[in-house]
């Protein structure tokens, strides 16, 4: 399993390098300033460079000292459905309105679990919709159309 554990370090190191590099490159376009009057680019460039170095160090460690770790399955279905519903929520809450969006969001994220079937997910969605209406719209006075402009005729 040594290769797999090293892969963990490789991947996290890679993420750090990528983020660090993005911040450095983007911050280069801002004014760097002098130590006395630091510009908006100063901290991001310095910190981004540190992050790149730390990422490289993590990658080196991946080769130097692989640790053992059990391989876990990737929950593709969960990733797609859960993240997809959040993006869907953001994209449509203004257009479709509260009730349809919450129903779809709750239903789709419930389907992310292998233990939920169509019927159980539908029941969860209906229940959550009522609960969220009570808590956010009635209880907290969230101002949002219940049925949005896209669905009005």
């Amino acid at each position: 399993m040594a290769i797999n554990a090293a892969r963990n370090d490789l991947a996290s190191g890679g993420i750090f390098v990528a983020f660090g590099a993005y911040f450095v490159l983007e911050a280069m376009t801002y004014e760097f300033g002098t130590p006395l009057r630091m510009g908006p680019g100063f901290m991001p460039v310095v910190l981004g460079a540190i992050l790149v170095l730390l990422g490289i160090a993590v990658i080196f460690k991946a080769f130097a000292r692989p640790e053992e770790e059990a391989r876990r399955p990737v929950p593709w279905r969960g990733i797609v459905l859960v993240l997809g519903t959040i993006v869907f929520f953001a994209a449509t809450i203004r257009g479709l309105g509260f009730i349809p969006v919450v129903l779809v969001t709750a239903f789709a994220s419930a389907m992310a679990s292998r233990n939920n079937r169509w019927l159980s997910a539908a029941i969860i969605a209906a229940g959550l919709c009522v609960l969220c209406l009570a808590v956010f719209v009635v209880g907290l006075g969230l101002i949002v159309p219940l049925v949005g402009p896209w669905l009005r005729f």
Partner: peptide, 10 residues
């Protein structure tokens, strides 16, 4: 967990 997802978004 669907409740957590929905609550988080709203």
């Amino acid at each position: 967990f669907p409740a957590i997802v929905v609550f988080a978004a709203i």
